[in-house]
Computed example of a mutant assay.
Amino acid sequence: MPPLSSPSPSPSSSPSSPQSSPSSHGSVVAALRAAGCVFAEDEAQLILAAARTSEELAALVDRRVAGQPLELVLGWAGFRGLRVAVEPGVFVPRRRTEFLVEQALAQAPRASVVVDLCCGSGAVGAALADALGPVELHAADIDPAAVRCARRNIAAAGGHAHAGDLFEALPGDLRGRVDLLAANVPYVPTGEVDFLPAEAREHEPLVALDGGADGLDILRRVVAEAPRWLAPGGSLLIETSERQAPEAVAAFTRGGLSTRLAVSERLYANVVIGTKA
């Protein structure tokens, strides 16, 4: 799946007219390429496979040309071999977040109680359950649209989706029992949100992007409360940026967790890992 951050269509692009509606692979590629889609060949194959009629094909191409993220056009995002359902107004899982899942699995390969906090579509929780096998899985988000989407994606794993502000959303009986707490918190500094790619800025909820003045407000809140929810030996993992990593590590350490930083240069991903004694 091409990344969400691929260049968006130029402002001068306009949806194809009925007379010029694409109906073949070549014409779809041409329409997407003219709109500025770098991965036009790959995207054309996915859109052609999703369309059941020529009218539906034209509508899907029009939506992509107009600047909608490919994942929302298709209705799903690829994530660690899964097709994760995504809906308008819900944060689209990024490929770099697969590194968060990889680190979580390496950290706690026998986890039985798993929480996906700030879950968005529930992609992280769904991927963890898929790899771990039967687990008690909970996902939570402050955005009701995200919770509805996550509920769909974790249903096969018997997961539970909760709406609310961070830990307030979770059942109280989880305190002290969580083996693995994964939190893909918003970490874009407020002043940098306007510089995000248009696909994110215009089609994803601000609450899933804006992490406060330095981008670490939500991370600090999660770290401050996480030890009360983790089981002994349980781990908290949070994705952050390279620039923010030193302060994120310091916040974990101040929270009393045994902390390390994992980095993937291939995916440009940074994950802070903290373990409760």
Rank of each mutant, 00 (worst) to 15 (best):
V101K: 01
E102D: 12
L105P: 00
A106T: 06
A106E: 09
Q107L: 06
Q107Y: 01
P109N: 01
P109L: 00
A111T: 01
A111Y: 00
A111D: 00
S112C: 02
S112M: 01
V114R: 00
V114A: 00
D116C: 00
L117A: 01
C118P: 00
C119T: 14
S121Y: 08
G122D: 02
G122T: 03
V124Q: 02
V124T: 09
G125M: 03
G125V: 05
G125I: 04
G125D: 05
A127F: 05
A127Q: 04
A127H: 04
A129R: 10
D130Q: 15
D130R: 14
D130H: 14
A131S: 15
L132Y: 09
L132H: 10
P134M: 08
V135M: 10
E136L: 14
L137G: 07
H138T: 13
A139G: 12
A140D: 03
A140W: 12
D141F: 09
I142W: 07
P144H: 10
P144T: 13
A145K: 12
V147G: 01
V147Q: 02
R148S: 13
R148C: 09
R151C: 07
R151F: 04
N153M: 08
N153F: 08
A155F: 03
A156G: 06
A156W: 13
A157R: 07
A157Q: 11
G158K: 09
G159F: 04
G159L: 07
G159W: 06
H160K: 14
H160Y: 04
A161N: 06
A161M: 07
H162V: 10
D165I: 10
D165N: 15
D165R: 13
D165T: 13
A169S: 09
A169D: 03
L170D: 07
P171M: 13
P171C: 09
P171H: 11
D173I: 13
D173M: 10
R175E: 10
R175N: 03
G176Q: 08
R177H: 08
V178H: 05
V178C: 06
D179L: 07
L181E: 06
V185T: 14
V185F: 12
V185C: 03
V185Y: 12
P186K: 09
Y187L: 05
P189E: 06
T190L: 05
G191A: 15
V193Q: 06
D194R: 15
F195H: 15
L196K: 10
L196F: 11
P197K: 11
A198N: 05
E199D: 08
R201M: 11
R201E: 12
E202W: 14
E204G: 07
E204D: 14
L206W: 15
V207D: 06
A208P: 05
L209N: 11
L209A: 12
L209I: 15
D210E: 11
G211K: 11
G211F: 14
D214A: 10
D214L: 08
D214I: 13
L216M: 14
L216R: 14
D217S: 13
D217M: 07
D217I: 11
D217A: 15
I218F: 08
I218L: 11
I218M: 04
I218Y: 07
L219A: 11
R221N: 03
V222N: 00
V222P: 00
P227Y: 05
R228G: 06
